[in-house]
């Protein structure tokens, strides 16, 4: 596991001068990703915040090879790059060992890019797919995705007088990826940088596809204080909103088990996207119940596979 001091030695492969909002969680994740991945990496991106803010022509924040194709196809695109690399290496035209990363937001991963991701994983390409999951289409102005949590206000699941935000639970993509029989799947947050670094390194060391779903605090979309981005990520874990766990070679491991989980309200009400739920006891109970069920399910899976 790398120390911070060791990580600083990589140099900034994702540089300053990007146009992400102040307090953006996604850029913290990308900085950590690149500090761990190092220079011999090719990164492919889905259209979205982290692609747009980092490559406004003629500027780029990337100090590694970076390929953006379209919204729904970063996994397919990187599968093409990785395959071409193998073809060229076989012919001796490429000598170096290169790692391949595809990333996308939750819209580009859970929704429009799910087929492309599933296909690439099934084919077994040697790549890490990282989803920075801020739970909505933030780049287009905060629209609901299948990763948007129950009750959240977005501009296409607005909290109104009759409907209180999104009325469906979020899709559990991490479990869907586990169902692909992948060797390595994980959930993480930028708060626990050491855990996230560890997971990135495990994923990149694999010969085959790996998937990491990283909670990505978004001050603009969540209606939260930019200074609190990391604290909110921490609260997400402490309230069981975002279990930090990994699935490695058939075994589940919950990396962080809060001794005494905090109540979900502590997470919800530091964000304006949930403020309309303040007096909606039933809806909050529904969220609480769902999270508890998912948590117990996860504990069972860990027990059963170990």
């Amino acid at each position: 596991m790398p120390t911070i001091k060791e990580l600083t030695r990589t140099g900034d492969l994702f540089t300053s001068g990007h146009r992400a909002c102040a307090g953006c969680g996604g850029t913290i994740i990308l900085r950590l990703l690149m500090a761990n991945a190092g220079k011999n990496t090719v990164v492919g991106a889905a259209t979205g915040c982290m692609e747009v803010v980092s490559t406004i022509y003629p500027y780029t924040s990337w100090d590694v090879n970076f390929v953006h194709n379209a919204f729904e196809n970063s996994a397919a695109t990187v599968s093409g790059i990785e395959t071409a690399y193998r073809a060229l290496k076989k012919k001796g035209k490429i000598k170096k060992d290169i790692k391949f990363i595809a990333y996308g937001g939750d819209g580009g991963t859970f929704d429009i890019g799910l087929q492309s991701l599933s296909g690439a994983v099934e084919r077994g390409h040697n790549m890490l797919y990282l989803c920075y999951n801020n739970g909505a289409y933030m780049n287009t102005g905060i629209q609901r995705s299948s990763a948007t949590p129950f009750g959240a206000h977005t501009t296409t699941s607005p909290a109104g007088s009759k409907i209180k935000g999104k009325m469906q639970q979020r899709k559990d993509l991490t479990e869907i990826m586990i169902a692909h029989d992948m060797k390595y799947v994980a959930q993480a947050t930028p708060h626990n940088w050491s855990d996230l670094s560890n997971k990135i390194n495990k994923a990149l060391a694999l010969n085959g596809p790996a998937f990491i779903n990283v909670l990505s605090p978004c001050p603009l979309g969540w209606g939260s204080d930019p200074a609190q981005s990391i604290q909110i990520a921490k609260l997400a874990v402490e309230t069981l909103y975002w279990p930090v766990y990994e699935y490695e070679n058939g075994k589940y491991k919950i990396n962080i088990k809060p001794k005494k989980p905090k109540d979900i309200e502590e997470f919800l009400f530091v964000q304006n996207r949930f403020k309309h739920l303040k007096n909606e006891k039933e809806l909050i109970d529904k969220i609480r119940k769902h999270l508890n069920e998912k948590w117990n399910e996860l504990l069972n899976k860990e027990k059963c596979t170990n």
Partner: peptide
Amino acid sequence: CPDSAITVKDEKMTGINFDYCKGCGI
């Protein structure tokens, strides 16, 4: 720091680069 605005030299923090710091307060 989302903006890589914390300057580090030889594994030591040397300051804040105000060319990039957006003042998020993290």
